[in-house]
Simulated scan of single mutants.
Amino acid sequence: MAIWLWDDGEEAGPLAESLAMREEDGARRMALSGRIDTQAAAALWARLMAEARKPGAPLLIDLAGVEAVDTTGATLLLTAQSAAQGSRIEGASPGVVAVLDRVRDALAAPRPAVVARRFAPLSGLGRRVVGALNGGVEALAFLGETLVVALGTLIRPGRLRVRELLRHLDEAGTRAFGLAALLGALLGVILAFQSAIPLRQFGAEIFVPSLVGISLLRELGPLMAGVVLAGRTGSAYAAELGTMTVNEEVAALRIMGIDPMALLVLPRVLAGVLVMPVLSLLLTLAGLAGMALIMQLLGFQLNTVAQQLVNFVSLKDLLGGLFKASVFGLAIAIIGCRAGMGAGRGPRAVGDAATSAVVGGIVAIVVLDGIFAVLFERLGL
């Protein structure tokens, strides 16, 4: 096993063949041999620097027996040389000398200036505002481009890829039916239970069907369907288009003279608009079924529940909810496609695009739902 030996014969470690110190012609000669790599330098550093800093005779670092050094070993040798006044390195092979010269030049190069971080909340706020405005302008431009492509497709229906539209209808709608039905049934059960508890104190449990029915038709049905669409479909749109953007497939389509808005974006947007009313209706019906089950458990007959729904729920509630669902689907699809088409470069681009699509879609449907609530109240709907 290879070892280091100090001048006192102490065994220092198994990382090099030898390290010996001896006095010679009024100088201290430090003879090294073997390979001085990162592992060896880590073990040698403390002892070599202690020897280099000892006052007295100058230090001669003899590298005649050194086979090779890496940048860490060269840094150790040069640091030891600079620490000992009047020291020098000798006996190194041409390869070792070349490494020492490169590391010496690197150590002598000026260090990059350290830029102090300034606490500037006003400029940071300004950058965020400008970034948000630029993002809003880009989103508005994307919306306008989508509208132009949709109007152009009305004039030339052949531009629409029907097969692609059917595929997205299946992925966004048919495959989400199970999740929408399960979520709606659980929502109806929860609403019925939670509504019956306070109404029971006033003997008004009979009004639970009307409360749950109006809530599902006007608000919760479209809103929860929008959450399902944003989580499943909006993120899928962003991930798929983001991958194509990162792989420069979208740029290749433009080079070939194919409009990616008509080929990639329009079928997805149409699928989102068409599938959302169906998902909302399915979720609402499943919620009403769950509510009816709870009412039966509470001792009410199905015909009583149906009569309450007929008395308090009108057609305008259903149509208003389906209209809101269509607008939610349009917003979610456009936000998802915009996030995918605007994806950046790098390994995080697709993940960031999917996250932006989900967050943006949920925020958009909540804001739109608030706008619709105020608008419908003002219009008396």
Rank of each mutant, 00 (worst) to 15 (best):
M1K: 13
I3H: 15
W4H: 14
D7W: 14
D7F: 09
E10S: 14
E11M: 12
E11Y: 08
L19D: 10
R22D: 14
A27G: 05
R28Y: 04
R28P: 06
A31Q: 11
I36E: 00
A46M: 02
A50M: 12
R53Q: 13
K54T: 13
V69A: 01
V69P: 00
D70E: 07
G73A: 09
A74Y: 01
L76P: 02
L78F: 00
V96M: 06
V96L: 04
R102C: 09
R102A: 12
R104P: 00
L107W: 04
A113G: 08
A116M: 07
R117N: 09
A120D: 15
P121K: 15
G124A: 11
L125S: 11
R127L: 09
R128M: 09
A132F: 08
L143G: 13
T146E: 04
T146D: 01
V148H: 06
T153N: 04
L154F: 11
I155T: 02
L166W: 15
H168A: 14
E171M: 11
A172T: 00
A176P: 00
A180M: 13
A181C: 09
G184H: 01
A185N: 06
A185Q: 08
L186V: 12
L191G: 00
F193E: 12
Q201G: 10
E205P: 05
I206H: 07
P209I: 05
L216I: 14
R218T: 02
G221A: 09
L223P: 01
R232N: 12
G234H: 02
M244A: 13
M244P: 01
E248W: 03
L253G: 05
R254P: 00
R254E: 14
V265K: 03
L266V: 09
P267T: 09
L270Y: 03
V273T: 03
P277V: 13
L283C: 12
T284H: 13
G287C: 07
G290M: 09
I294P: 01
L298E: 10
F300G: 03
T304Y: 13
V305P: 00
Q307E: 12
Q307Y: 08
L309G: 07
S314C: 01
D317L: 00
D317G: 14
K324W: 11
S326R: 00
V327T: 11
F328W: 04
A331F: 08
I332W: 00
A333F: 15
A333S: 10
G340E: 01
A343D: 05
G346F: 03
G346C: 10
A349E: 11
D352N: 11
A354H: 05
A357Q: 04
V358T: 07
G360H: 03
V366L: 11
I371R: 07
A373N: 06
V374S: 02
E377H: 05
G380E: 10
G380P: 06
L381E: 02
L381C: 02
